[in-house]
Amino acid sequence: MKTVIIKYNAGNIRSVLYALDRIGVEGVVTDNPEEIRAADRVIFPGVGEASTAMNYLKERKLDLLIKDLKQPTLGICLGMQLMCKHSEENDTPCLGIFDVEVKKFQSPVDNLLKIPQIGWNNITGLYSAIFEHVRENSYMYFVHSYYAALSADTVATTNYVINYSSALQKDNFYAVQFHPEKSADAGQQILENFLKIQ
């Protein structure tokens, strides 16, 4: 089985590679369209800014390619947000795989909200093959200022002032806002589940 990680101008790619390595899978980092299309699994990671990342993908026509992927594909963090329809971050049109708006966290008037959300938060309402053997309310590591709103494709929910989508799924597309590659054993289980999806 071949697992590729889409190479683009966003961070944390090495962390994903190492996490795969810990479960005995060798990932290949590439932006070669043929190699991505031929892979059995595609991981679309990322830490960064939405418009810069989208521009990079468009210049290389990776935007069209990602939308058309047929194999199980997992977006992580910014990767998840880019798979949505639109992001408030610099008013960026995104890939539109999920019909979901990405918004910025807002402080309630009576409370100082720390943005970005940094740290461990729990995931509930788990409803996807990637959560097999992952218990309800498991803690995952999050670092983000923007969130995907709740939608029909929500398969995990997290609360940070409001309830939002911590995971989305539609057909062969899976997406998580947290970092499974940094979320200890529970995160590793999710990566293992993704690699096992039929």
Binding site: N12, R14, S15, Y141, V143, S183, A184
Partner: peptide, 29 residues
């Protein structure tokens, strides 16, 4: 980064964008 599955910070003597780039590329969070 290869062996630890939680986030980690690296500090000490960092004074430039270049220093940070190397550490992040090697897997520091």
């Amino acid at each position: 980064a290869r062996h630890v599955n939680i986030p980690f910070t690296v500090g000490g003597g960092i004074s430039s964008v270049g220093d940070v780039s190397v550490l992040l590329q090697n897997g520091a969070d």
